[in-house]
Amino acid sequence: MKKYGVLIFALLLCFTLSACGNSSSNANSKEQEKDMSAAESKSSADKSNNNNEGEQTERKTLEKVGDSLYDSNTGTVTLNSLKDISNKKLTIGDLNLKFIDAKVITVTDISDSFKEDLEQSFGVRPKEFTYAQIRYKTENTGKDDISWRGFRKAVTSEGQQVDLDFNLSLGIPNPSSIDMMPNSKMEENMVWVPVNKGEKSIRLKGEDVLKKDNSKKDFIVYGKEIKIDL
């Protein structure tokens, strides 16, 4: 799964009819409206049937604990827990991080391609894979260009340190290196952390923040860590 993402399907139909003139044209207009209505009803019915037939492959979000779906790129994914962590913030120099939510997800019936990805990253082909998915936003509140390398390490509640570089090979949007202009934001960032199903918390280590102008006194602000409840 080199490129993993969330697919959102939106269909919008808009019909506008206008009629004017004598009674004959009104009759034609009504007939047209009748035909259009029948066509729209058929379209809606076809769409409903297609949605029912392809529900497992088209639905790409896990919103409630216990939700499960099949993704051909990974396997069967199940949401074990979901926590709102919007009260969590981390500041490293001019970089402000605002967290959104934390999901613990288990993948079973793992696809061959995802098994290969996991083997390349961890040296094993597991029967199932559980990870915490942490979403967050970044903002440069300063007047200088800065760069940041995201979250590179995590520590579980049992003290096990985890290398997060595998996010790069899986295509997860945890920055390998981002340059942010002054007073700018990036809304969608995410990091995966391998955990046990019953994991209650992890510690994330944010990397150093560097200013483009290395003559500045505060050219480098060393990274910090934050505890995230799951």
Rank of each mutant, 00 (worst) to 15 (best):
M1K: 09
L7I: 11
I8A: 11
I8Q: 12
I8W: 03
F9C: 03
F9Q: 12
F9W: 02
L11F: 11
L13F: 09
F15S: 03
T16N: 12
L17Y: 09
S18D: 09
G21D: 05
N28Y: 15
S29E: 09
E31V: 01
E31Y: 06
K34A: 15
K34N: 14
D35V: 12
M36T: 08
A38D: 15
E40T: 07
K42I: 11
K42V: 13
D46R: 10
K47D: 10
S48A: 14
S48H: 03
N50W: 14
N51C: 02
G54S: 03
E55F: 08
R59A: 00
T61C: 05
T61M: 04
E63D: 13
D67Y: 01
D67F: 02
D67S: 07
L69V: 15
Y70F: 15
Y70K: 10
D71C: 05
N73Y: 09
G75F: 08
G75S: 12
T76E: 14
L79V: 07
N80D: 07
S81W: 08
L82Q: 05
K83A: 01
I85K: 09
N87D: 15
K88P: 01
K88I: 14
K89A: 10
I92S: 02
D94L: 11
D94P: 08
L97F: 02
L97E: 03
L97C: 12
I100P: 00
D101Y: 11
A102L: 08
A102Q: 06
V104M: 04
V104A: 04
V104E: 01
V104F: 06
I105N: 01
T106C: 04
D109L: 05
D112G: 04
S113V: 13
F114Q: 05
F114D: 02
D117C: 03
Q120C: 08
F122E: 06
P126F: 00
P126S: 06
E128Y: 12
E128S: 15
F129R: 04
T130H: 05
Y131W: 02
Y131N: 01
Y131I: 00
A132M: 13
Y136F: 15
Y136A: 00
Y136L: 00
E139A: 14
N140I: 09
K143F: 06
K143A: 14
K143D: 14
D144T: 05
D145Q: 09
S147A: 13
T156M: 09
E158W: 05
E158I: 00
G159M: 03
Q160R: 09
V162K: 14
F166R: 01
F166Q: 02
N167A: 10
N167L: 07
S169R: 07
S169V: 08
P175I: 03
P175Q: 07
S176I: 00
S177Q: 08
M181W: 01
M181T: 13
P182V: 07
S184I: 05
M186D: 07
M190A: 06
V191L: 03
W192R: 06
P194Y: 00
V195T: 07
V195D: 06
V195L: 10
K197M: 09
K197T: 12
G198T: 09
E199G: 04
S201A: 10
G206A: 15
E207R: 11
D208Y: 00
L210T: 04
L210S: 05
K211Q: 10
K216E: 11
K216L: 14
K217M: 13
K217D: 15
K217E: 15
K217F: 13
D218I: 10
F219L: 03
F219V: 03
I220G: 04
K227A: 06
I228V: 14
